Simulated assay, not measured.
Amino acid sequence: MAALSAMRADASPLTDKHPAHVFRPLSEILSRWAADGIDTTPFHAGVEDAKRRYARYGLSRMLPLDRVLVGGESTRPGAFGGFHHPDQGYRHLQMVAVITMHGPMERKIPERPALALLDLLRAYSHDCLHYGSRRRYVEVAGLPVRTQYGINYRRVSGQSYSVADERGSRHTRNLGVVMEGACDREARSITRKSAERFDITEPMDVLGALTFRDVTGTLTEGDSRRAVDVPESAERTQYASALRNYEIGVNRRYLHFLGEFAPGEENECHARLLAAIISGDTTTLGAWLDDHHGPGTFAGLFRTSGYFEPGLTA
């Protein structure tokens, strides 16, 4: 599709949303940090681990480093970056991930290099799974419309296969949440392993400790309910709030989902979900769910009643 190719040739509409930040390709960022004396081995070792793990799920190619743009050197006073910085992440139409350097962004190198590298590893590992997820597009009026992402579907009309979760729910029946949770569970597991291997320890301050637990997937139930206020920095307070909301809205819901439908077999179900997300084929996953919970479990769990309504099946 010509329109899709054009979108993927120009990432400026994404970076223009952050005019105060300077964005550079991830490969360049890592080289600059290394030149300034930062040991980037924990990131590279984590990526090698991710490659091996993802290959088992059917992902044969990682997101190219030049398709990852990292923001820093900000001119905005008090700018604070990281995984939960607003309006960033993988964008499928442009096939680009936009992320930010963790910590104070009015710098060329991170204030806490080890923590920033872990945050970067979590973000990159996470976005590689989004990049590798099965997608299908159709052209409508000259524009690309995504009709499949992983194991979720959407009509050209906009009708989604699965319904949104109710506000405040501890559970999920939304495929977007399930897929996001699966990607982040895997990314945080990779990050945790790298932190352990290179003896990177938890910072002493509250936000630093929460960030470390967040990127390594070790947040407690109490952490997820904890409100953090940093009086001297509105952006740090906002970051802590976004971290908490993501943990509650995505990771805790995914954890409850695994506990509901795969008690004692959470890792097996998680692995089958990731393989299905990469391939876009729910046959094996569906058979496993049917074997555990009866025929038609996948559709029964996720499909909204209006998906096949007349007039919405285009």
Rank of each mutant, 00 (worst) to 15 (best):
C183R: 14
D184C: 09
D184N: 13
D184P: 02
R185M: 05
R185Q: 05
E186K: 07
E186L: 12
R188A: 01
S189W: 10
I190Y: 00
I190E: 00
K193N: 08
K193M: 07
K193Q: 12
S194M: 15
E196V: 15
D199A: 15
D199F: 12
I200W: 05
I200M: 09
I200L: 13
I200Y: 03
E202G: 10
E202Q: 15
E202Y: 12
P203C: 12
P203D: 08
P203K: 12
P203Q: 10
M204C: 09
M204A: 15
M204T: 15
M204G: 13
D205M: 11
D205E: 13
V206S: 11
V206K: 14
V206C: 08
L207Y: 06
G208F: 05
A209V: 06
A209M: 07
T211C: 09
T211E: 15
F212Q: 01
F212L: 02
F212N: 02
R213D: 05
R213S: 06
R213F: 07
R213V: 06
T216Y: 03
G217D: 02
T218E: 04
T218S: 08
L219N: 03
L219M: 10
G222D: 14
D223S: 04
D223W: 02
R225E: 13
R225N: 11
R225F: 11
R226M: 12
A227Q: 13
V228D: 01
V228Y: 01
D229V: 15
V230S: 09
V230C: 13
V230K: 08
E232N: 10
S233M: 12
A234Q: 15
R236S: 09
R236Q: 15
R236E: 13
R236Y: 07
R236A: 10
T237D: 10
Q238V: 10
Y239M: 10
S241D: 10
S241G: 05
S241H: 09
A242N: 11
A242E: 08
A242W: 05
L243G: 03
L243A: 08
R244M: 07
R244C: 04
R244P: 02
N245E: 08
Y246F: 09
Y246G: 03
Y246M: 01
E247K: 03
E247V: 00
I248T: 06
I248W: 08
I248V: 13
G249R: 01
G249A: 06
G249D: 04
G249Q: 02
V250T: 03
N251C: 02
N251Y: 01
N251H: 02
R252V: 04
R252G: 03
R252N: 08
R252E: 07
R253Q: 04
Y254V: 01
Y254W: 01
Y254S: 01
L255F: 07
L255P: 00
L255K: 09
L255W: 05
L255T: 12
F257Q: 01
F257R: 01
L258K: 04
E260V: 05
E260Y: 05
F261H: 15
A262T: 02
A262V: 03
P263R: 07
P263Q: 06
P263A: 04
P263N: 06
G264L: 10
G264N: 08
G264Y: 05
G264S: 10
G264F: 07
E265L: 14
E265D: 14
E266C: 06
N267S: 15
